[in-house]
């Protein structure tokens, strides 16, 4: 089975220059891989660096050491050392991300926020909007909100926009940062189904799920991030 995501010996720390150069180690020696069709969950107590790992994988955080190897259209790309243009290309075609919070763009309707990743890949506007509508319907977002910009939506509504936006493409790798945190049971169940469908389709998923029930339902494997804690490594 293909392994589209390999993380090897990754380390990350923050230097807080505003606090006299305080060194804040985050993780060290992070090594794991995710196979196609597999859903791997990052586990461990909060503050241990789960979100930081996802952000490094998506390129929002820099990486001090190690490699993040992504199978990008048959080519291995090391995201830890790729230039911005390569990172954007990998994001467009291979690597999807559902963040905890929606970054709102003024004046863009919910439908277009969701359809945007498809448009970026060259899908026709009408087709992209149709697909966006399907997903919003599936996630039970009230129809009267679809044409509105999501800035004033509730947390749960915004999160569903985020999920739809992340799931709309057929990216080979999907990163999920607590996608169900502010959802009710009914919509959590929908997301669980959608994750199952992605697995079925051969997507490699890596996620953080605080909700134990969801975690049980989707995880093939749980990686305990405490193992990468620099404090532990030092001890």
């Amino acid at each position: 089975m293909a392994t589209p995501l390999v993380v090897s010996e990754v380390a990350k720390s923050f230097t807080m220059h505003l606090r006299d150069g305080l060194q804040l180690p985050v993780v060290t020696g992070v090594s794991f891989s995710v196979k196609a069709g597999e859903c791997v969950v990052l586990g461990g107590p909060s503050g241990v660096g789960k979100s930081s790992i996802l952000k490094m994988l998506y390129g929002n955080y820099g990486v001090d050491e190690g490699q993040i190897l992504i199978d990008h259209g048959g080519k291995r790309v090391d995201l830890a050392h790729a230039d911005p243009r390569a990172v954007l290309e990998v994001r467009r075609d291979t690597l999807g991300y559902v963040s905890q919070f929606l970054r709102v763009v003024p004046r863009v309707s919910a439908i277009d926020v969701v359809a945007d990743p498809l448009l970026a890949r060259g899908v026709a506007l009408e087709d992209a909007r149709d697909r966006a509508c399907e997903l919003l319907a599936r996630l039970n977002l009230p129809r009267e909100l679809w044409q509105l910009p999501p800035a004033t939506f509730s947390g749960g509504e915004q999160q569903r926009i985020n999920i739809a936006r992340g799931f709309i493409t057929e990216h080979a790798i999907l990163l999920l940062d607590e996608p169900t945190a502010s959802l009710d049971a009914k919509n959590r169940a929908v997301v669980v189904e959608m994750i199952a469908a992605k697995k079925q389709a051969g997507t490699a998923l890596l996620g953080i799920f605080h909700d134990a029930e969801v975690r049980e339902a989707v995880a093939d494997r749980i990686i305990d991030v405490s193992a990468f804690s620099p404090r532990k490594a030092a001890a």
């Binding site: 923050f14 952000k55 998506y58 390129g59 929002n60 955080y61 820099g62 911005p84 990172v87 954007l88």
Partner: peptide, 10 residues
């Protein structure tokens, strides 16, 4: 310099 997300988040 770098990816905008990276410079602003990290």
């Amino acid at each position: 310099q770098g990816l905008t997300d990276r410079v602003l988040d990290d």
